[in-house]
Design a protein around this nucleic acid. Sequence first.
DNA 1: CAATTTGAAACATATGAAGTTACATGAAAC
DNA 2: GTTTCATGTAACTTCATATGTTTCAAATTG
Lengths: 147, 147
Amino acid sequence: MKRDSRLSSVLHALLHMAEHDGPMTSEALGLCLGTNPVVVRRTMGLLREAGLVAAARGHAGGWRISADLTTVSLRQLHEALGEPAIFAIGNRNETPDCLVEQAVNAALDHAFEEAEALLLERFAAVSLADLAVDFARRHAAWRAAQE
Amino acid sequence: MKRDSRLSSVLHALLHMAEHDGPMTSEALGLCLGTNPVVVRRTMGLLREAGLVAAARGHAGGWRISADLTTVSLRQLHEALGEPAIFAIGNRNETPDCLVEQAVNAALDHAFEEAEALLLERFAAVSLADLAVDFARRHAAWRAAQE
DNA sequence: CAATTTGAAACATATGAAGTTACATGAAAC
DNA sequence: GTTTCATGTAACTTCATATGTTTCAAATTG
């Protein structure tokens, strides 16, 4: 199963935007992410619809963050992306007639629901500002190591 | 992304086997699961390698459980299936040079590791015997509802 | 008007789970 | 011992879907 890496992508893009003065074009972001500008527009477009970023066309256009970094959590970004499926494992049949399969589904669903709740709770607890701080720490450590 | 439903499948198969006297053929299990006998053999073969089931060829052959239902947990089954990837969401690049992406990966990895640990813990706490009990309960309720 | 940039549709590629076909191997029945 | 039944396994096809690509319209700026 191919994994959905859009959450990772938009975080990467947003932090680059946060470190950058002025708007960044899809092409510039595509270079940072190692992907195509159209893929950037497609994914960032979902964040635009959620009001997290704004896009401007034409000369000096591009993408900029239109929200407070301290208030945007990973969970909000996950939601902005349309809450894609979290698990690569699932039930064979979600609405079985077979009582055996119903018992199996109930047990698996329960475990997955707990894990999902924990994951979303952790996502909600991390903001873009937290990531920016972590990046700054790594950057300082990297600069120190260059000496 | 297409979800891996093998854990769900083998649980369904194992509970039918537990309710059934004597070995069950791949064809019979395929009918229970709504799939092809070859798919059953392919998947059950992994459980055979883990020593959880045994297969006999020829007349009166088929699959039977070769372990104590109370000692086989969902986690053991997950392991027998080769510990397939749990999440449908992941990092774009697992070993990035970019410090921004490293910070992003660290945050996501941390959240996913916690959720994975919880899920596996829950899997470890549920045995086939537990599922058999739940099935029996559902079956009794169903019979009562038929009157 | 010309250059730049997003928006979006349409199509191509890649990956992996699941399904299918075909046949060899082994075990029991007769 | 031959027939029948069943697993073991390889090879191929199908299907879903994330990602990538091409193309062009629309909007904005110089």
